[in-house]
């Protein structure tokens, strides 16, 4: 039985708290973009994706490519809470000899479907997996979580054309549309709007929803699964730093170091 929306919200809160603890312990890492992605990951791993945490490399599993690789803390926390590995391991994030590297390494961490580092590269990887799945007659779906600033990268649009041309309806891209990047707002640095229109003219099926509403997220993913002959992009409207008031919509919390005091304050907000 899938968890209820209320249960999913509780899980998301636990994952957010884990993210903050990991960042405090590590002394570095990306808070804003991890927190904005949490509800998307929780909706996927608990409500949508067919996975077997006890068999991370099960052939028929749905896959996720974390193209916005800097959100690794959110993915690690989600995987740990979903049962892929011990929650205690989260405290080793970014430390020497850890299995939880700063950016996902599939050879070190159970549940990671592709090693990734630079944003902009994940959608091509997802397309490749999707092409192989079609050739092999496999039913699994491939999700690719991207940042919005990431869509500045040219490779994203190359991959966008490829997926549409090859009718990769088993690919579902999710854009964490928090309107922020590292140095400021996407619309101030290099504007992305109108983002829906861009993807539509690239022949994608486009769904835009509130990326912190797990019901809307789950509905968007089932709509995507029903679309044939076309890849789907879910534009998830989010808030960078979601859940921690002093981080919300603040570009500096892209990768600022968390102090003990601020950590306490953040954990209170997520109590």
């Amino acid at each position: 039985m899938s968890p209820t929306p209320i249960e999913l919200r509780d899980i998301a809160k636990v994952v957010r708290r884990d993210v903050l603890t990991m960042l405090l312990e590590a002394g570095s890492g990306h808070a804003g973009g991890s927190l904005s992605s949490v509800d998307i990951l929780v909706a996927l791993y608990w409500g949508v994706m067919r996975v077997r945490p006890d068999r991370p490399s099960w052939e028929e599993r749905d896959r996720l490519v974390l193209s916005k690789a800097h959100a690794a803390p959110a993915l690690y926390a989600a995987l740990a809470r979903r049962g892929y590995f011990d929650v205690k391991d989260l405290l080793t994030f970014r430390k020497i000899r850890t299995k939880l590297q700063g950016f996902p390494d599939m050879h070190k961490t159970p549940g990671i479907d592709a090693s990734v580092g630079s944003p902009g590269q994940g959608l091509s990887i997802a397309n490749g997996i999707a092409m192989a799945a079609k050739r092999d007659g496999r039913q699994y779906r491939i999700y690719c979580l991207m940042g919005d600033g990431e869509a500045h990268e040219g490779q994203v649009w190359e991959a966008g054309m490829t997926a549409a041309h090859h009718k990769l309806d088993n690919v579902c891209a999710v854009i964490d549309r928090n309107r922020m990047m590292g140095d400021g707002g996407t619309e101030d640095i290099v504007a992305l709007s109108p983002l829906q229109d861009k993807w539509r003219t690239f022949n994608w099926h486009v769904v835009e929803i509130d990326g912190h509403n797990v019901e809307q997220l789950t509905a968007a993913f089932s709509e995507a699964a029903s679309v044939k002959g076309q890849p789907t992009v879910v534009i998830a409207r989010t808030v960078k730093g979601k859940g921690v008031p002093f981080m919300e919509n603040k570009a500096e919390w892209h990768d600022r170091k968390l102090t003990e005091d601020l950590y306490e304050e953040a954990m209170k907000a997520l109590a």
Binding site: A26, G27, S28, G29, A69, R94, K95, Q101, G102, F103, D105, S115, V116, G117, S118
Partner: peptide, 9 residues
């Protein structure tokens, strides 16, 4: 020097 970020960075 990117330290904690690890191998990809």
């Amino acid at each position: 020097s990117a330290g904690g970020a690890g191998g990809s960075r």
